[in-house]
Amino acid sequence: MQVDKNDLDNMAEAFKKVEHEISRHMIGQKSLIRQMIIAIIAGGNVLLEGVPGLGKTRLVKTIGQVLDLDFSRIQFTPDLMPADVVGTNIISRASEKEGMFKFQPGPVFSNIVLADEINRATPKTQSALLEAMQEHTVTVGSSTYNLPEPYFVLATQNPIEMEGTYPLPEAQMDRFMLKLNVIFPTIKEMKEIVNLTTKNKEEALEKIANGSQIIEMRRISREVPIADPVLEYAIKLIMATHPDNEFSTETVKKYVRYGSSPRGAQALINGSRVMAVLEGRYNVAYDDINAMAYPALRHRIFINFEGTSKGLTSDDAIEAIIKELT
């Protein structure tokens, strides 16, 4: 079915409503909310990074409610086992006559999975999420189970506590479409947050969309045209993150260890398409690419020791690349 103007306009309108509704319940973090919704529509997983208490879990819960999606939360701890995440076969009395075991789905069987403090779990447990995040399936024993659609993993990690944490391996990092930094609220926002969250009763959230609408929005967004020069620009941007590539900048050559994988390009383009619709445009612009470059690439660019010792972040490298290419 061809996408027409109404589809795009309705999508933009629904998006704005979702955004507005979440913002009503989540003070500040406008950019974070928008990028979260973009990732959900684009069908990607999100890694949220921020100090505790900034409302990461609240945000995820809110999104789940507004989008009328199932929501489950996994608090990652060092002793968390993969079976605690994906589920396990248990002996079932009801099935005694028929057989010994019955599969008990884990918390990943939900539309939105909040993997809280994901870097506290061991790599073995973290990797239990890999299949779910990428394939939207879970394999236990010899059986593979499909996860409900739409399916998102929204993981959080605490950047300041390194003791007893297990940094996510590169392969798992790459499976997150976006990595979003949760910034500390301003005084004004803090005041509003306190006012909002210290009352006996909070305002109820309105359900703006549902799972099938999210899937339709994803379909519509992927039809948004992108001109060749813009696409080439996005590709060059990805290429430039590799220190040994012809497009790489001096900063990248000097301070970057690894650059983005092709998944980075997919994330960049898909995110940019959604962003274009939200901006009321029917085509992708350079600005969309530039805006999406930071969340889509910051966890895919690995700064070397020299860069880290100089306090350089992947955002600095991305900024240098954009400046060089434009």
Partner: peptide, 26 residues
Amino acid sequence: LKERIVTAFQLKDDNSKLSQVQRTDA
């Protein structure tokens, strides 16, 4: 114009609804 014109020129031979919408918008 946020790459509207370059996209419109690229889609000049595309008669899909979305392309027409894009051209009109541009």
